Simulated assay, not measured.
Amino acid sequence: MKRIFLLAAIGLASVKSSVAQHFTHGLGVGIFVEDAKRTNAKGSFTFTYSPRLSFAETENTSLSIGIPLNIGFSGTYSGGYTSDGYYEENDLGYMINVPLMLNFNIGAGSAKGCQDRMGFFVGAGYAYHIGTVEDNLIGNVYPHTETESATGLAANIGLRIGVGHKKKHNIEIRSSYMRGMSSYKPHVFGANCLFNF
């Protein structure tokens, strides 16, 4: 699965130089919440890099394929001294979410020459998700943290607000959902804010 995403990224970059109508990058931050039957719910603060290739463009619509890579961190760490000595609690974790998304775009950010102030998009795809989870199976007196990964269907929806001269750049607000269909079958919800340039 990792090889498929790597090949898609390389293909996306190489197509840019030959037949791309509109190639953009986006950088931003977000929040992801992950939950599954046998794990505790976990929230993560994420950094996002989102390359996107638009094609089949009209004056203010397009189709696009993108790989919004999200890398996140979660948890807390604390330590100190008590009458019993030094103690520490560490439940730091990480997550990586990599979906391959096909979107329909309209308005701002959809086509190279589009100067609309507002735009919208909706799409679906397939995602790979990996990260640390805390197992909460009944019978585990001391829940333990482990690394799990899953693949599954993904969807996203959002809006874009054109900014700058001729609205060439935009601010994107996106919500996403992934339903893991392998391994521990997580539900992964995301909300991101990006600047596309």
Rank of each mutant, 00 (worst) to 15 (best):
147 T>F: 06
63 L>N: 13
193 C>T: 09
179 R>K: 15
89 E>C: 14
10 I>D: 06
143 P>I: 15
83 S>W: 03
186 P>W: 02
124 A>N: 07
32 F>D: 02
54 S>I: 07
56 A>T: 04
175 S>V: 15
48 T>L: 13
41 A>D: 09
91 D>R: 06
89 E>K: 15
154 A>D: 09
102 L>K: 04
143 P>R: 02
69 L>P: 02
149 S>N: 09
63 L>W: 14
41 A>R: 06
62 S>N: 12
170 N>T: 13
60 N>M: 11
34 E>N: 06
15 V>Q: 05
95 M>E: 01
28 G>S: 03
197 F>V: 02
171 I>Q: 13
185 K>P: 04
125 G>W: 05
112 K>T: 12
174 R>C: 09
123 G>C: 02
164 G>C: 06
33 V>Q: 12
1 M>H: 03
153 L>A: 14
113 G>S: 10
49 Y>Q: 11
37 K>A: 14
141 V>L: 08
57 E>T: 02
6 L>C: 09
164 G>E: 08
131 G>K: 01
72 G>K: 02
143 P>S: 08
78 S>G: 13
43 G>C: 12
49 Y>C: 10
159 L>F: 11
70 N>D: 14
62 S>W: 07
112 K>H: 10
192 N>A: 07
184 Y>G: 05
75 G>T: 04
94 Y>C: 03
30 G>T: 11
117 R>D: 13
134 E>V: 15
27 L>V: 08
82 T>M: 12
161 I>C: 12
89 E>I: 14
48 T>F: 08
52 R>S: 00
184 Y>C: 00
177 Y>T: 03
144 H>S: 15
14 S>E: 08
17 S>K: 11
46 T>I: 11
105 N>I: 10
3 R>P: 12
142 Y>P: 11
25 H>T: 00
93 G>W: 03
53 L>E: 04
141 V>K: 10
70 N>K: 15
152 G>Q: 04
95 M>C: 06
175 S>C: 11
112 K>A: 05
62 S>A: 14
43 G>I: 15
80 G>H: 06
100 L>T: 01
32 F>I: 02
83 S>M: 10
12 L>S: 01
24 T>Q: 14
3 R>F: 11
114 C>I: 07
50 S>A: 15
29 V>H: 00
53 L>V: 05
68 P>S: 02
65 I>E: 07
138 I>T: 15
4 I>N: 00
142 Y>F: 11
2 K>T: 12
66 G>V: 00
57 E>K: 03
109 G>I: 03
48 T>P: 10
152 G>A: 09
100 L>A: 06
78 S>N: 12
192 N>V: 06
115 Q>Y: 10
73 F>D: 00
74 S>N: 15
75 G>L: 05
119 G>R: 06
164 G>Y: 07
172 E>W: 05
52 R>F: 01
116 D>L: 12
5 F>R: 01
16 K>W: 04
41 A>M: 10
184 Y>L: 07
6 L>S: 10
193 C>Q: 02
195 F>E: 08
95 M>A: 06
139 G>Y: 03
107 G>M: 02
58 T>M: 10
53 L>A: 02
173 I>E: 05
